[in-house]
C-alpha cells in the first residue's frame, strides 16, 4: 500500500520541497485575525454604550463612529499580527491551544456583534 500521496510528499509534486515550516507565522496570523474580529465587536459595543467613545471613534463624519471602530480594530489586528509574527515567526507552537484561543475570540466577537447581546450587556 502506497501511503505517500503527492500532497503528503511535497517533493513528489516538485513544489515547495523542503523542511516543515514552523507554525509560528500561522499562529500569529490566526490569533491576530481573531483579535481583530473581536475588537470590531468590542469597539462597536463601547461606542454604542458610551457617547464619549462614539465621538472618539467618529474619524470620518459621513460614516460616523463606524469609521473609527473599524479603523482602530484593523490597526489592532495589523499591529498585533506584526508583533506576534516577530515574536513567533520561526518557532513551532502548540497550535491547538492557539486555535482554541482564536476560536473563543471569534465566537465572542460574533456574539457581541449581535445587537440583542450588546443591548443585554448594556441593560437596555
Amino acid at each position: 500500500m502506497n501511503s505517500h500521496r503527492p500532497e503528503e510528499n511535497p517533493a513528489a509534486t516538485g513544489d515547495d520541497a523542503g523542511a516543515e515550516i514552523p507554525n509560528g507565522a500561522a499562529a500569529a496570523a490566526v490569533l491576530s485575525a481573531a483579535a481583530g474580529c473581536f475588537c470590531v465587536s468590542v469597539f462597536g459595543l463601547l461606542g454604542d454604550a458610551f457617547p464619549a467613545i462614539a465621538r472618539f471613534f467618529n474619524f470620518y463624519n459621513p460614516t460616523g463612529p463606524l469609521s473609527g471602530v473599524t479603523t482602530t480594530a484593523i490597526a489592532v489586528w495589523l499591529v498585533s499580527w506584526l508583533i506576534l509574527s516577530r515574536t513567533w515567526g520561526g518557532k513551532s507552537l502548540p497550535m491547538g491551544k492557539i486555535n482554541a484561543a482564536a476560536f473563543v475570540l471569534l465566537a465572542l466577537g460574533l456574539a457581541l456583534s449581535f445587537p440583542p447581546v450588546g443591548d443585554l450587556l448594556q441593560g437596555k
Binding site: D15, I21, A26, A33, C37, V40, I74, L106, L110
Partner: peptide, 24 residues
C-alpha cells in the same frame, strides 16, 4: 455594519496562511 468586517480580516489571514505554507 460590524459583522461584515470579519470577512476581509479572516480571508486576508486565510490567503496569507495558504501563500506562506503552500503544500506544507
Amino acid at each position: 455594519e460590524h459583522v461584515a468586517w470579519f470577512a476581509p480580516i479572516a480571508m486576508t489571514m486565510v490567503a496569507y496562511v495558504f501563500i506562506k505554507y503552500r503544500s506544507d
